[in-house]
Structures are given as C-alpha cells and as structure tokens.
Write a protein that binds this DNA or RNA. Sequence first.
DNA 1: ATAAATTTGTGCGTATGTATC
DNA 2: GGATACATACGCACAAATTTA
Lengths: 362, 362
Amino acid sequence: MGQDKPKYQQLKEYLIELIDSNELTKGNRIPSENELAGRFNISRHTVRRGISELVNEGVLTTTQGKGTFVNQGFRNNRQNLIIGVITTYIGDYIFPSIIRGIDQVLSENGYSIALGCTNNQFEKERQCLENFLNQDIKGLIVETTKSALPNPNFELYEEFKKRNIPVLFMHGSYKGCSASSIYVDDVEAGYLATKHLIELGHKKIAGIFKIDDIQGHARFEGFCKAHKEFGIALNDNRVLWFDTNDLKYKFSMQSGEIIIEFFEDCTSLVCYNEQIGLKLIDIIRGKGGIIIPNRLSLVSFDDSDLAVASEVKMTTVAHPKEKLGIEAANLMLKMITENQEVFKVKMTPELVIRNSTGPVTG
Amino acid sequence: MGQDKPKYQQLKEYLIELIDSNELTKGNRIPSENELAGRFNISRHTVRRGISELVNEGVLTTTQGKGTFVNQGFRNNRQNLIIGVITTYIGDYIFPSIIRGIDQVLSENGYSIALGCTNNQFEKERQCLENFLNQDIKGLIVETTKSALPNPNFELYEEFKKRNIPVLFMHGSYKGCSASSIYVDDVEAGYLATKHLIELGHKKIAGIFKIDDIQGHARFEGFCKAHKEFGIALNDNRVLWFDTNDLKYKFSMQSGEIIIEFFEDCTSLVCYNEQIGLKLIDIIRGKGGIIIPNRLSLVSFDDSDLAVASEVKMTTVAHPKEKLGIEAANLMLKMITENQEVFKVKMTPELVIRNSTGPVTG
DNA sequence: ATAAATTTGTGCGTATGTATC
DNA sequence: GGATACATACGCACAAATTTA
C-alpha cells in the first residue's frame, strides 16, 4: 500500500484504470460507494471525494438512487487542448493564411484553435482576453492590436503569465513585456523595397505608411535606412502617413486627385501594403496618363493574392504568411512543453520582383 | 432560514454575494473554514464542501496553511460560452468572410469561436468533432465536408444531439439528418448569372463548373434552367468541369491555349467563381485579342475582393458571405435559447452588374 | 531559531434524507 | 413497503503548510 498518495487519489486512479482498460465503458455502472469503501477498506466519505472529483472532470455522472455511471467514451482522452489565437482582422488579406498555417500545425498535434478578433480595437482585444481567461486554454498567440500605441490591457497579459499560460506575440510585442514574440523583420523589408528602387536609379521615392501600426514604423525605418545608406536625401513631403480610419476614405476614387498630386514629382513609390497598392493602381488607371512602371515604379509588401490580381503584377517584399503561422504554432508547442522560456524569433522577408518596378526614365 | 436549499449551497451564494458586491475582491482572503462554520453554525465539513465547489468553478483558490483566496475578477461572469465552428477551408476565398460574420455576432453576445478546419477530409472532420465533444461548447456550426457523399461521422453528430448541443449546418446538410441548416440558393445563383447573359442577347454561353462540389452542381443546374426557360439549346461541349486538383494546372498560363479554344465559339462565359475568373482574365490578357466584355462577357460568382481586383470589374452573383455568417450566428443563438427547434434558412443571392458583361456584338 | 497558533488537507464514523427500482 | 444508492450534514482526529509571537 503506497502511503505517499492520498487514498481518494488512489481510488481515482483505480477507476480511471478500469475505464481505460475498457473493463468499464460508457454507460456502465461503477460499484456503489459502500462497496468500494468495503473493498478498499476506506470510509465511504473518502470514496465520495474521489468520485466527486471524477464527476467534476467529466468522467463519471452520479444519479441519486441509481448509481454512478461512466460517461461517453469521447472523454477517454481527458485532454482539452485549446490554443487561443487573437488577430486584428479575421477575414482580410494575409491573416487567413497565417491562421491556416497555425491550424495546420496545431491540429496535427491534437490541439484546436479558439479564435478571437479585435478589429484593431483595444476594447475588443480586452473582451477576447477575458474570454480566454475564462476558458482552459493551453497557450495564447496574439497578433498585436495597434502595436505602436501603449496597450491598456497589459494587466490581462500579466494574468496569463501568472497562470503559467504561455503567450506568444506576433508582429511585435508590447513595450515592457518580456513575453516571447515572432515577427517579420519589417525594417529589413522596408530597406529591401527601397534599395530595389534605388538600384533601379530612382532618387525621388515617395512612401505611404501606416501610423498606428508598428509594422508601418518599421517599414518606414527601413525606408530611411536605405536612403541614408545610398546618400539620398529624404524629403518629408514625400512620406504620407495614414491610420486605420483613413483606409476607407483617403484612398477612394473621389480623393484620388490628392493622392496623385502627392507623388507627382516622384518616380517611384513604396507602398505600405497591397491593399493600398491595389487601390492606388485603380486610382491611377482611372485617371489615366500614368503608366506603371514607366512613369511610376511601385513596390509593395506582403505578396498576398492581391499582388498579382490586376494587370499590374506588383513587385513586393513577401511576408512569410503560412510559414509565419507554422513557425508560431511550433514555437507555441515548444513553449508549452519547455515551460515558459522566452523566445524571440525573427523571420526575414524576401523581395519578389515583378513588373510594377523598372529603371527610372526621363 | 430557508430549509429548501442545502446549507453548502447557501454558503456558496453568500460568498458569491460578497465577491459580486466587491466586499471581497481579487486576492482577498475569505474567512477561515472554522470561522465560517462557527458564524453560520454549520460543520466545518459543510463549509469545505461549499468552498471546494467554488474552487472547482474557478472562483476561489485554497492554499494549505495560508487560507482561501478570491481569484482574479475575470471569472466574475463564470460562463464559458463557446460555439464550435467547423469549415472545410480556413484561409481561402470567401470562408474568412463567413467566419468574420459569425464572429461579429457571437462576440457581441459574449460568445467566442472555437475553430476547426477539415480540409474537406472526413478524418479531420471526425477529429474536430471529437475535439469539440471534449470541450464545453454551447453550439456547433458546420460547413459540410463532402456533402454529396454519405457521412461516416454521423454518430458523432448524434452525440451532440443527445447532449442537447444545437448543430447548424451551412451550405447543405447530411442526408437523413434532421438538423437545422442555412444555405445559399446556388441554383438561383446559376440561373441569375445565365439569365443576365441571355437578356444581353447572348446565345452561345460557355460554362465552367466544379465537379466535386455541390455548389458547382447547383450552379450548373441553374445554368441549365435558364437555358431551358429561354428556349436555348444547351451544348455539352460548352461546359467545362474541373475538380480541386485541376485548380493549379488547368488554369495556368501554360495551358491557356486550351482554355481559350474552349470558349472560342462562344460570346459569353459563366465562371464557377472569381478565383477561376481572375485566372481566365489573366490568360486572356496575356494572349491579347480578346476584349472583355466586347468579345467575351464574363459572369462569375461570390463577389469576393477578387471581383474588383483587376482592371476588369466582374459582373457576379454575390454570395452573402458575412451576411450568411451573421445569419448563421443569429440562428445559432436562437437555437440555444429556444431549445432545439429545427430551422431551414435559404438565402438568395443577388446579381451585381459591373463591366465584365455587355450586349452581344457582331 | 523555535515554538505556538492558525489554516487547510486527509481520513474515519455516524445519522438522516431522498430518489430509484 | 423494502432494499439499495446517492445526498446532506455533524463530529472528531491528526497531518502538513504557513504565519506569528
């Protein structure tokens, strides 16, 4: 008789053993409390304690007057392996690819995804986090919301840490937070895009970047770095910043005039992503007169479907997408097993040259 | 003193009351077991039972030697509202929009989504279902996997029914299953697309449809229906069938010649979806000579981003997408509250006319 | 640094109530 | 009604962890 383990624990293990070996299967009645008490020479109270824990774990169900029964066998693997995933947008652009990558790896390993979507709003992010705190998730992968701004949901992330639930940030992490993160080297991306234009002879390069997003900042940093490295002066008037709210209005056909004026004296354009890129192409096509790449070279980022959707096949700096998702999921599995190590993984983007860029003319 | 409720239950309610009224908040120690026993004149054993249930519900945490403490307030709403969502593909095309629609409604109502993805394989579907059976989900929304074939996971769906977990099928339900379903009228969609061309004067209409997909069959059915209704003969040679595996090869630039030959003697084309439509536009643009809509009118389906991505803005029959997701989520909420009624909801698609179609010429 | 007090954890015994067969 | 099985409830004893004097 092991004196180390509590008796109710031993009883639990005995019952689990019976169920796992199929001596008791779904629907079977287990011996009565009194019988178990007699058989193991323990008190009925102790039997009750063991049983009540198994009921709580979903293994058994008790019915007064009838007995205690084994639940449906689906609970045989009594695991509940869920990873929370929070993204800014769910259905747009490259996010689906990332989620697909994550799902691919996790489902292979018996995990499933619980999905949350912030629409880039702190309030919704908070809601998602609270939701996940109420669930028994084994890990959390977060694509940061408004990553360039200070985050008001800091305490909630701390709570995950306290509970030993690993958190992995994607596309940048919050300041002062020592959590793991996986991100694309967006400075390098911005650098590669700009360098490509410079090497084609461009000197007047416009840039459009997103202001409330750390990726926007990073890509702009790379934009600057390339200018500096090649000794080209950077003109502030050639950089246009926009935020999430501008998306619908600033880049519509109606305001196309303003946009076109903006890069009028430039020969090329570094464009924050392909959603914007495609809208610009539409505007330019609509106005006529400007030909890509002859009059204007365009580099964008991400290499989504949109890059090759129109007649202008965009030169772009490819985001790893699925690969990032796969990497992130693998990291998460590692974090779960290797107990709270902090990882920082940087993925390097690659330039994909298509026909939206060409040598400077005139 | 209410004699109806058990004493441990009364104790639980007393403690919950203290927490909800913020007299005890996160981190606070509650009175010791002995003190509570004395105060309420009940035995310590009874106190322990009440406390142990609250521990199990995540409200309290006990530490031997220290005391019993109130957990972080996130559990104040001790609900665990998760809806399982199973789709065939996660990241492609219109699925993200559907998921976004579902998420929009559910998150507003305090639910969150647990996501599963079958890749159109029965085995993965089974895995997802077993996963969800192990979780405490409140409902299940399933996009059917290989809906034309008999489903081997029937018993698992039955199990949900047994547990009173409502199941809602999307895009068709399994045979012999009396569950609720929500679907788009794809016959009508095919009919609308074809009728639009006929009304523009087209009589030689080619069709491209997906063969391993019930939507493909339905859209083809509508294609036929319109031909019959307007007394136009249907030529088998003008219908091209493809399956999932063909996607990569059949519609590439390399095999473009074959595709173009296929609709050479037609003035218009009904194209299964916009992924294919966009590839065709690329092929046509690459070959030159054929102008849309002058030489060839093109109608597609779904109204995804891709419809307006290129210089050819596609006329298309819009899939409700988000709206379908929203509808589905609302239905699910209704099913949860109204206890297992069976709903059948049909959504009607709408024609969106853009500039890929025009009157027949020559 | 040690002992005492406090608090939770394990375990036994008993009694009575209530649901099911 | 009677037998059986689970539900509620009280009491006691000792062990183990933590705090405090």
